[in-house]
Design a protein around this nucleic acid. Sequence first.
DNA 1: CTATAATACTAATTAGATTAGGAAAATGGC
DNA 2: GCCATTTTCCTAATCTAATTAGTATTATAG
Lengths: 189, 189
Amino acid sequence: MAKAGLDKSAVIAKAAELANSGGLDAVTLKSLAEALGIQSPSLYNYVGSLAELKRELMLYGWRQLEERMLRASAGVSGYDALREMSRAFYKYARENKGVFDAALRYNKFADGEAMAVTAGLFDVVYRIFEGLNISRENAEHLIRTMRGFLEGFSLLVNNDAFGNPVSVEKSFELSLDVLIEGMKALEEK
Amino acid sequence: MAKAGLDKSAVIAKAAELANSGGLDAVTLKSLAEALGIQSPSLYNYVGSLAELKRELMLYGWRQLEERMLRASAGVSGYDALREMSRAFYKYARENKGVFDAALRYNKFADGEAMAVTAGLFDVVYRIFEGLNISRENAEHLIRTMRGFLEGFSLLVNNDAFGNPVSVEKSFELSLDVLIEGMKALEEK
DNA sequence: CTATAATACTAATTAGATTAGGAAAATGGC
DNA sequence: GCCATTTTCCTAATCTAATTAGTATTATAG
């Protein structure tokens, strides 16, 4: 049997592909092995279990998100940076449904590795908030507001949960307006 | 074999209990049957499959949410009603992690029954927004903003995704402030 | 050119969902 | 109260997917 010449990152990447095309539940060791042209037990050379594979997918998603968000906010500052970063987040979620689903579902502060992955992301976000004339304490809360909105809105869109035909893109932009105006109003008090 | 005297709603209720105590993944036909004191094949007298059971759990969650939100906003109007309703949503999510998870995960506008369940909920929300001096078109968008935030924030809290010790309750209240101030600012334009 | 490690395989086990077929309990009509 | 029907439950069997065990083959280091 010729070796397939795989490595862990290739396995994760293929799992990401499967997740994005068929949904996270379509990622099984069986389907993944088949997609890679090997037998499912062989996957244990790369991952410890199906659960671990999904966790890797979660980390993979957060790494990619960080990269996109970082890139999107480069060279921009203030509320524009916040907007650009939010759009990058949303765009990634829309274009990578399966991986995003994994990122959300296993989005826990359980261990060091998961924290390390999101730490970089937080650096970016904190830096943006520093340029926003917002107190450190409020920033802590408002970042949570943004996280909540971005993750929830993206999840809803990915689930086709908005039943009516009103433009989703417009809803997103208007939501950003509301959030930003709200933050500004808060600081003026 | 003495009959257990079950019916569909008792089965769903027990599934909800299992989901809330051990997480949605802890709900298997095996564990559910055991909790009910019957054998797993007997469950097919009440539900067509595991997938259908989870769907029922989703509907169960939305029905309960509607009831809570309706109750919370009774006798209140304007932005206070929005606040109370949001708090009721968040509270339910916090106190019913497993069911809420099911409600989110299967939150699609797939079929008539799912739409019927959430239709009542939307009536309540639309009525509140009518008292808010917000145009019908904007209301459509802002409801999505609120849904996004509420679902996302609740999910994050349930996943312990907020790693630092800053008060989550305060974050929630401040988020409502921001959202409401933002909406007001929007109307003043 | 060999020793070791890495990669892949087949075969077997396990858990859980589901199906098939049958027995016992409840129910409705008389 | 009694029978026919339906409902509820059971055991046995099947199926799919994860996982484990054990082995062969390919790569790689020296």
